[in-house]
Computed example of a mutant assay.
Amino acid sequence: MPDDSTHGFQAGQTGLIVRIPDAEPAVRTWRERFDPSARAGVPAHITVLFPFLDESRIDARVRSALTDVFSRHHAFDLRFASCGRFPGVLYLAPEPDTPVRRLTEAIADRWPEAPPYGGKFTDVVPHLTLADGQDDAALEEIEAGLLGALPFTSRVSSVDLMVHNGTRWQVRASFALRA
């Protein structure tokens, strides 16, 4: 989930993601080797918002508000046909990325105290991380290994609340998008 350069996941951290199960056959092996979030239990996904509220703040009122926010957004399809890069990071780029951006904006507007990535970036780029903290040679190897697996399409119909328990990330709740 988080593209956290320290990879220091903490108990009680939460994040909101859209799972991309259709990516798993193509990316699982790469993510398990090169993405710390995969080794910590996070499935192939696109982050909607990380970090979200601390787990201690997630109560019935927050869950109700999440249900309300997400139910205003329609389910959508994403196509994955190409890779992109940040420094040390290789990712799959979703097309179109506008529906994910709208989800992020809606949550950030509702909870301004939880800006995406802690406010580190002015432009949040939706992406499915394949490798994090790797050199260019590793990123090139992964990208070449994915050529035969692209493109694919995945339906997004819900957003998951993930919580770190001190050891692993776990799904705590799932919020449906409008059909």
Rank of each mutant, 00 (worst) to 15 (best):
A38M: 06
G148N: 07
S154F: 07
H7K: 15
L139C: 02
S71C: 08
F9Q: 01
V100L: 01
L147R: 06
P94D: 04
E140V: 12
D109H: 15
A108H: 08
Q10W: 06
W169Y: 05
L103G: 05
A11K: 14
R155I: 05
V125N: 02
G8K: 15
T47P: 08
A60T: 02
T153H: 10
W169A: 03
D22I: 00
V156A: 02
P126Q: 03
K120W: 09
T122F: 07
F76C: 03
P126S: 07
F86P: 05
L78Q: 10
V27F: 13
L16T: 02
L78P: 03
H164G: 02
P99F: 03
D77V: 09
G8F: 15
R85S: 10
Q10D: 10
P151R: 07
S157F: 13
V27G: 02
L103F: 00
I107Q: 04
R19G: 06
A138Q: 07
V100K: 06
G41T: 09
G8Q: 13
E24V: 13
D123V: 12
F152Q: 13
R72G: 12
V48L: 04
V48F: 00
G133P: 08
T67N: 14
A176Y: 05
R172D: 10
R33Y: 02
F152L: 08
L130P: 00
V171S: 04
D136C: 07
V163F: 04
R101I: 14
R39A: 14
V48I: 12
G119E: 02
A149Y: 08
L103K: 02
R155H: 13
L150Q: 07
T67R: 12
T14Q: 05
D35V: 03
F121T: 12
R19L: 11
S154P: 06
W111C: 04
S158M: 09
L150V: 06
I46S: 09
F70G: 00
T153F: 07
E141K: 13
L177I: 01
H7Y: 01
D132Y: 14
T67M: 13
L161A: 02
S64W: 11
R79V: 11
G41D: 06
A176S: 14
E113W: 09
S56A: 14
R72F: 01
E32Q: 12
T67F: 02
R28F: 11
A108C: 15
V42F: 05
T122I: 14
L150R: 08
Y117L: 07
D4G: 12
A138W: 04
E95V: 10
E55M: 09
F34C: 14
T29S: 15
T129K: 00
M162V: 01
L128C: 11
F152R: 09
T29D: 15
H127T: 12
F76M: 04
E141Q: 13
R101S: 06
L16I: 03
D136N: 09
R101C: 09
K120I: 14
D97K: 05
A108Y: 06
W30H: 09
N165Q: 14
A114G: 01
R79A: 09
V42Y: 05
S64Q: 15
L66M: 15
I58N: 05
R79Q: 11
H127S: 01
D135N: 13
I17V: 14
A106E: 15
V48K: 05
A65M: 15
I58S: 05
I17E: 00
M1L: 11
T98C: 07
V62K: 01
G133K: 04
V156C: 04
